[in-house]
């Protein structure tokens, strides 16, 4: 790790002239503190590398076209592919959740930044959105089970989408509001001065200006939702065959399959769990990295 060595070198440049006058105790304390900071970074980075390496090593060897498309074996003992139903389930459930949470979240953020601003209601909503990001995902699962699954008497993919949408909504609202706040007021004033109404100014001037930032925030919310397990376990049930319908029949996702297979003592199940984890990590990291690229470009062009 070359990165870890650099800061101590950089520190030396400043301290060389002072070093002679420092008492040994102070010098040692300073070096020890720097070493502790480097160490704490290593303590976090090493497990990350281990997790990713382990999943890629184990999962990489089982993931191929067949793994991604074939039905899930209905016996944990069987060795072999696949995870097709879980791939389809992850995509359609997350997509439906995004289709609900992103427009609603953006609208909510528009209220906070363009209309409510600092009034009491807006401040309450802002605070509650922050609090809502901390509500455990399993509680969202319980909630959707109570208000949706109990009413319609069936565990469906759409129930999973609802739970994921509840988890995404506060993230989308808060990141979008941050982005709207960065749009210069001059743009709004210019648009209004040309005679455009408030709604038109917001939709054609303010939103396009903030679009890259909003997109990157939404991608992060999607990444988080795609990896959620607990609500899916509670409200979408389980299937071994691909189910393209959100509203009829049980469904399953990659995350739920990882959970089910990870605790099994059989090699076949464990390998499928690794394969599913590999697929899920690629999906989630792709979203995260795209989001970072978009927001990096956004901040440099501004």
């Amino acid at each position: 790790m070359t990165v870890v060595d650099m800061p101590t070198d950089a520190g030396h440049d400043v301290e060389v002239s002072l070093e002679a006058n420092l008492s040994p105790a102070r010098r040692i304390a300073d070096h020890a503190a720097t070493a502790a900071m480097v160490l704490s970074f290593a303590v976090a980075a090493v497990p990350l590398v281990m997790i990713i390496g382990y999943v890629f090593l184990k999962g990489g060897q089982v993931v191929d076209m067949a793994f991604l498309t074939e039905a899930i074996p209905n016996s944990y003992r069987r060795v072999g592919p696949g995870m097709g139903p879980a791939v389809v389930g992850t995509v359609i459930i997350t997509a439906a959740a995004s289709a609900m949470a992103i427009p609603l979240g953006v609208l909510g953020a528009i209220y906070l930044n363009e209309y409510g601003k600092q009034n009491r209601l807006a401040r309450t909503i802002r605070f509650m959105a922050d609090v809502m990001t901390g509500v455990p995902s399993v509680v969202m699962g319980v909630f959707v089970y109570v208000v949706w699954v109990l009413r319609f008497r069936e565990q469906t993919g759409f129930a999973g989408s609802l739970a994921l949408a509840c988890l995404m909504l506060p993230i989308v609202i808060r990141t979008t509001e941050e982005m709207l706040r960065l749009v210069p007021d001059e743009l709004r004033l210019a648009s209004l001065a040309l005679g455009a109404r408030r709604w038109r100014t917001t939709l054609t001037v303010v939103l396009p200006a903030a679009l890259p930032g909003i997109t990157s925030g939404a991608m992060l919310a999607v990444a988080r939702a795609a990896g959620e397990t607990a609500p899916i376990l509670l409200v979408t049930g389980l299937t071994f065959d691909t189910n393209w319908s959100l509203f009829e029949g049980n469904n399953t996702t990659l995350a739920a399959q990882i959970f089910r297979n990870a605790s099994q003592p059989y090699e076949g199940a464990q390998l499928r769990a690794y394969g599913a984890a590999f697929t899920l990590i690629l999906l989630v990291f792709a979203c995260t990295i795209v989001a970072r690229i978009i927001s990096a470009r956004f901040s440099t062009t501004r």
Binding site: V3, M6, A10, G11, A45, I51, V55, G227, A255, V284
Partner: peptide, 29 residues
């Protein structure tokens, strides 16, 4: 306070990736 400016985004990336790994993958590991 310590890391040179160029390194900061690398550290942030590591922390972001740590946050991006789904909890079920931590469980699997």
């Amino acid at each position: 306070e310590v890391a040179p400016r160029r390194m900061r985004s690398a550290i942030t990336l590591v922390v972001d990736l740590l946050a991006a790994v789904p909890s079920v993958v931590y469980g699997l590991w």
